[in-house]
Amino acid sequence: MSDLAGKTALVTGATAGIGRAVAMRLAENGAKVVVHGRNADRGAELVSAIAGKGGRARFVAADLADAADVERLAAEAGEVDILVNNAGVYEFAPTPDTSTDGVHRHLAINTRAPFQLVAALAPGMAARGHGVIVNVSSTATTKVTPGGAAYGASKAALETLTRYWATEFGGAGIRVNAVRSGPVRTPGTEPLLAAVGDAANRMTVRGRIGDPEETAEVVLFLAQDRSSYVNGTIVDVHGGEPATALD
Rank of each mutant, 00 (worst) to 15 (best):
M1W: 08
L4M: 12
L4S: 10
K7L: 15
K7S: 13
T8S: 11
G13R: 02
A14M: 03
V22A: 06
L26W: 04
E28R: 12
A31Q: 07
G37Y: 00
G37P: 00
A40H: 01
D41V: 02
L46D: 00
A51Y: 01
G55E: 05
A57S: 07
A61C: 03
A61W: 02
A62T: 01
D63Q: 06
D63E: 14
L64D: 04
A67R: 11
D69L: 07
R72G: 06
A74G: 15
A75H: 12
A77E: 03
A77I: 04
G78K: 12
L83T: 05
N85T: 12
G88E: 09
F92L: 13
P94W: 03
P94F: 03
D97E: 11
G102T: 00
G102F: 00
G102D: 01
G102V: 00
R105W: 11
H106C: 13
L107N: 08
I109H: 04
P114W: 08
F115V: 11
Q116C: 10
V118H: 06
A119P: 03
G124Y: 07
A127E: 15
H130M: 13
V134I: 11
N135I: 08
V136Y: 00
V136L: 08
A140K: 02
P146T: 06
G148V: 06
T162I: 02
Y164I: 14
Y164N: 14
T167R: 15
G171Q: 10
V176P: 07
N177V: 11
V179D: 01
V179L: 11
R180K: 14
P183T: 14
V184Q: 03
T186P: 10
T186V: 15
T186Q: 12
G188I: 02
G188R: 08
L192C: 01
L192G: 08
L193R: 05
L193M: 07
A195Q: 11
G197R: 04
N201G: 08
V205G: 07
G207W: 00
R208I: 00
E213N: 14
E213P: 04
T215E: 13
A216Y: 02
E217W: 11
V218A: 05
A223D: 01
Q224T: 12
Q224W: 01
R226P: 03
S227G: 08
V230H: 04
G232C: 07
V237K: 03
H238P: 05
G239A: 06
